[in-house]
Design a protein around this nucleic acid. Sequence first.
DNA 1: TATAAGTTTAACCAAATGGTTAAATATGTT
DNA 2: AACATATTTAACCATTTGGTTAAACTTATA
Lengths: 200, 200
Amino acid sequence: MTEIELSTEEKILKAAEEVFMRDGYDGSRMQDIADVAGINKALLHYYFRSKDKLFEKVFDAKIQSFFPKMGEKFSQDIPFLDKIHIFIEGYMDLLLKNPYLPLFVLNTVNNKDKSEFIKKLPIELSRQVAQSYYVEFKKGNVRELNPAQFIMSLMGMCIFPFLAKPILLDMFKADNDTFDKLMEERIQELKHYVTLIVTP
Amino acid sequence: MTEIELSTEEKILKAAEEVFMRDGYDGSRMQDIADVAGINKALLHYYFRSKDKLFEKVFDAKIQSFFPKMGEKFSQDIPFLDKIHIFIEGYMDLLLKNPYLPLFVLNTVNNKDKSEFIKKLPIELSRQVAQSYYVEFKKGNVRELNPAQFIMSLMGMCIFPFLAKPILLDMFKADNDTFDKLMEERIQELKHYVTLIVTP
DNA sequence: TATAAGTTTAACCAAATGGTTAAATATGTT
DNA sequence: AACATATTTAACCATTTGGTTAAACTTATA
C-alpha cells in the first residue's frame, strides 16, 4: 500500500463528498467539510468559491454513477437476460460500495433549488435497455413487457434496500455485516426474479 | 362539498405536513409553516413549543402509512398471491395520493439526529407477509423464496418511481399527468411480475 | 535572494433562523 | 361585568452560518 499524498483540492473534494452524502446539502456545514479535509474554512473558499460551486462538483461525479453508463456492456452481443444479470451484479456492487449514493442523488433531483443539475443526467441507460430489449423480443427470446416499467422495477429492487437500510436493520434485527451479506445473497435472488419476469 | 372550518391546531398540522414533506426538516422554516397555515410565528410556538416537537407529530402520522398496516387484509383467508395483489393496489394508490411520502420518511429515518423516531415504526408488515407466505408455501401453492428479499423487492418496485420522479419525467419526456397514468398502468404490470415470481 | 503561489490564523460581517416576551386585542363563557 | 383563552403584533435575542478580509508564514521556483 503506497502512501499517496493527496493534493489539497483532492482532500477537499473527498471531504465534501463524505459530508454532503452523509448530511445532505442543507445539513452540511462548510466548517465540517474543512475539518474533515484537515484544512480551514478560508482555504476552502479559496479553492471553491461557494458552497453551491463545491456541491455541483461533487454532485456531477455522483449522478454519473447513479445512472450507470453500461454502454459497453449493453453493446456486447449477448442475450438480453445476460446483460440484465451483469447489470445487477455491477450495480449492486456499486451500491454496496456507495450506500449513501441513492439518497443523496434522489434528494438533489427532488430539490427545487437544485433542479438545474437534473439536465446533466444521462438518459442513456433507459434507451440502451429498451433497444436491447426490442432486438431480443423480435427474436422471440423474451416475453412482451414495457421496458420503461421493467427498468423502474429493476432499479427499484436494487436501490430500495439501501434507502431503507435503517428501517430494515431494525426490522430484521440485523447489523451492518448481516445487511451486506443479505445484499450479496440478494444478487442471486434478483437474477432469479428477472429471469422469471423476462423469460417467455 | 361541505365547508369545514379547521381548528388552528389542524391548520398548523396540515401546513407543517405540507412544508416538511416538500422541504425536509432542515429545509423547512417555521415562518414558512406559519405563512402556509395563515397564522403568525408566535402562535405556532404557542401551540407546538418547538420545531422538533411539531416535526415529531407530523412524522408519527406519516411513518404509519409508509409501512402500511395491512393487518386486516392479510388476515383474510385468501391466497397469498391475492393478498399481494391487494397490497399493490392499495399501496400504489396511497403513493399516488402522497407522492412526497417516501422521500420524507426515508430521509428522516436516515437522519442521525432524528434516529429516535425509528423505534416507532411498525415491523408488522414484514411479519405478516412472512407468516402468510409460509402457510401457503407448505400447501405448495407458492415457489420457494426468501420472504425478506421478496418484500424488499415489492416495496422497491412500488416506491422507486415516486422517489425518482423528477428524473423519470425527464427520461420519458413526460408531464405529471402522463406520470400518473404510467403509475396506474404500473399496478397491472406489478401484479403480473409478482405472479411470475411467486407462482411455482 | 526575490517573487509568486499556497496556506494558516483569526477576526469580522450580514443574514437567516429558532425561539421568547410583553402588551394589546378579540372571543367566548360564567 | 369579569374572566380565561385564543390571537395578533412587533420588537427582541442568541446562535449559526456562509462568506470575506488582511496579515503572516511556508514552500517552491526563477
